[in-house]
């Protein structure tokens, strides 16, 4: 069956829509994460989200709503810790491990057969349900409205937090909101790349665009487009090779990064 014929199936259409949603999340929120040097914060949150997966499975509740709630609580907790005790990387390490440890214990305590966790670790676009799609779309739309509505503040906060404070911007609140937005973006991306590969989609396309863009808005748009191209290419590769879409999408992004590095190194002057 060709890729085009597969597109007539509902699961494939949802896979494509999920990939494009994740591209939007990576482009807009991911750009904010990268320019605010919060990539490892997102790494800690994405790994800690395993605790949310374990909690949902243990309680027998739907995974996605629990994940959105769990990562939001973790983000707010991290924000409070950083405000109170300082911006120490050790908090990220603690959260990273604590979430994964909690998830592992809860998964083991879940009665019945051990569930297949491969989709959560490496992503599985083909299994996105319509309910999950609507939930992620609604949450992402809310996130995009928050960023678009206060774009001028986000641009200043990201470029120069100290100066932003002198202009009266609520820097502490913006930092907290950005952490929660990061948590939401991570859950959207988890469906595509899983918690182990999510950081690749936040970082690689943004790395390709970061030094070329002349505004945060341009960076957001270009990163989203590049993520969409990687997602479409990765989906095609996954069908062609009969492998999971998540690793295939990340492989396409890595290939583009290598090509860009070679171009920057050997381009004719």
């Amino acid at each position: 069956m060709s890729t085009w014929e597969l597109m007539h199936h509902g699961f494939m259409q949802r896979a494509l829509a999920g990939a494009l949603l994740a591209s939007l999340a990576c482009g807009v929120i991911g750009s904010l994460i990268v320019v605010n040097r919060m990539l490892f914060v997102s790494g800690a949150l994405s790994h800690a989200s395993y605790g949310g997966i374990g909690l949902a499975l243990f309680l027998g509740w739907p995974v996605m709503p629990v994940l959105y709630g769990f990562t939001s609580v973790m983000a707010v907790g991290l924000w409070r810790l950083r405000r109170r005790y300082g911006d120490d990387e050790a908090w990220l390490g603690a959260m990273w491990s604590a979430g994964m440890g909690l998830g592992a214990i809860l998964v083991q305590l879940t009665p019945g057969y051990a569930p297949d966790l491969g989709g959560y670790l490496f992503g599985n676009l083909m299994t996105i349900s319509p309910a999950d799609m609507w939930l992620s779309s609604s949450i992402l739309l809310l996130g995009l409205l928050i960023i678009a509505g206060g774009y001028r503040m986000w641009a200043l906060f990201s470029a120069d937090p100290q100066y932003a404070q002198s202009r009266g911007l609520p820097v502490a609140a913006l930092e907290g909101v950005l952490l929660v937005l990061s948590a939401w973006a991570i859950v959207v991306v988890l469906q595509v790349a899983g918690l182990l590969l999510a950081m690749a989609l936040f970082s690689i396309p943004a790395l390709l665009v970061h030094h070329r863009a002349r505004s945060l808005g341009t960076m957001m748009v270009l990163t989203a487009l590049l993520n969409a191209a990687c997602s479409l290419g990765g989906l095609w590769l996954a069908v062609w090779l009969d492998v999971s879409p998540g690793p295939a999408i990340v492989s396409v992004a890595c290939f583009l990064l290598i090509v860009d590095l070679l171009w920057r190194r050997y381009r004719p002057h």
Binding site: A159, D160, H210, L216
Partner: peptide, 8 residues
């Protein structure tokens, strides 16, 4: 205070 290599 202005972040280096910022897209602006």
């Amino acid at each position: 205070s202005l972040r280096a290599n910022h897209p602006v």
